[in-house]
């Protein structure tokens, strides 16, 4: 698949302050790419550099094979962007801004915009100053999507949306992918990213911590294991479980034990099979918990 977004050791600093460091990204055509990280991790910096709002300190960024800075106007003509802090002139209505943006983009029909506004419940008639944060965000989503861009870049798009609208928005995003368009979705709401993203990048302290298909991130991660036995195990036998590679957070009582397991399922199953097992549970952790492991001290996770 052709890369829509590609960065190579992309670095952006603000004076002595860190922005992003050596970010290598590749977002393929037709995928929903989740970009995860807490506030200040570098998500918005990455997006604003991709759109040519700021110049990289080093490294390169390209969108559709075009240079992010030199060809910024061409890139933006093919991109729909929802900034993280979506703000419009207070006196303007969504309708006025929509017509203005449509003229700048040469969009003659606003039928699709009205369709989007209807599905999201966006009020385009009232001035922005009279809209709540959530309602402003709906207008922002309509303005980002109304021209059916090849690439949608959404920075924290669900902030302020109520649950019903969020569901409708996620359905819209899935439809965008079904149409073969690409979505770059920055968020710190893990549940929605897990639901709709094909791949996830995790950014921590300005550096990419991981880029994986969503399913692999989940499958490659640890499991919470609980095993109950028919009879009480001796301490010596319990300690054999604790000594297995990949076992952490070990706990036990007279005839059951629990631990966190990083891989090495086979040894655990074989050791357990020496006893009469009455219950066994390999619980997949929620994405939130997986995500937090990327934010733990790397040495604590046994990483180099």
């Amino acid at each position: 698949m052709a890369a829509v977004i590609e960065t190579d050791k992309l670095t952006k600093t603000y004076g002595k302050n860190r922005g992003i460091v050596d970010v290598d990204l590749q977002v393929d055509s037709g995928e929903i790419f989740g970009f995860l990280g807490p506030n200040g991790a570098g998500k918005t910096t990455t997006i604003r550099t991709l759109l040519g709002f700021q110049r990289p300190a080093s490294g390169t960024a390209s969108v559709f094979g075009l240079d992010s800075r030199r060809d910024s106007v061409q890139i933006r003509s093919r991109v729909g962007n929802l900034p993280g802090e979506f703000t419009l002139e207070d006196r303007m209505t969504g309708e006025a801004m929509l017509r203005y943006f449509a003229r700048l983009r040469g969009v003659e029909s606003l039928d699709y915009a009205r369709h989007l506004a209807g599905r999201l419940g966006a009020d385009l008639k009232r001035p922005m100053r009279r809209l709540s944060r959530g309602n402003k965000q709906k207008v922002g989503l309509v303005l980002a999507m109304f021209h059916r861009p090849e690439l949608l870049i959404l920075d924290e798009p669900t902030g302020g949306l109520d649950p019903l609208v969020r569901e409708e928005f996620l359905a819209l995003i899935a439809e965008v992918r079904d149409e073969g368009r690409t979505v770059f979705f920055s968020s710190h709401v893990l549940g929605e990213v897990e639901r709709i993203c094909d791949r996830i990048a995790v950014i921590r302290g300005g550096r990419l911590a991981a880029v994986e298909p969503t399913s692999e991130i989940i499958n490659k991660s640890f499991r919470h294991v609980r095993i109950a036995f028919a009879r009480q195990l001796k301490n010596k036998e319990m300690r054999k479980f604790a000594a297995l590679a990949g076992v952490d957070n070990f706990d036990h009582d007279s005839n059951s034990l629990s631990f966190t397991l990083y891989g090495n399922y086979d040894d655990v199953v074989k050791l357990a099979a020496r006893h009469t097992v009455v219950d066994i549970d390999f619980e997949r952790p929620p994405l939130e918990e997986i995500f937090m492991t990327y934010y733990a001290d790397p040495q604590e996770r046994g990483m180099p």
Binding site: S77, A102, R148
Partner: peptide
């Protein structure tokens, strides 16, 4: 919201709009 027609107007996924000359953009901006 949920009562709205879910069928998007227009056909296919082709981007809407066309290239607008810089002079025309300038006029719209002004």
């Amino acid at each position: 919201m949920s009562t709205a027609n879910r069928e998007a107007p227009g056909t296919g996924a082709a981007p809407l709009g066309r290239q607008v000359p810089a002079a025309a953009k300038l006029v719209h901006f002004i």
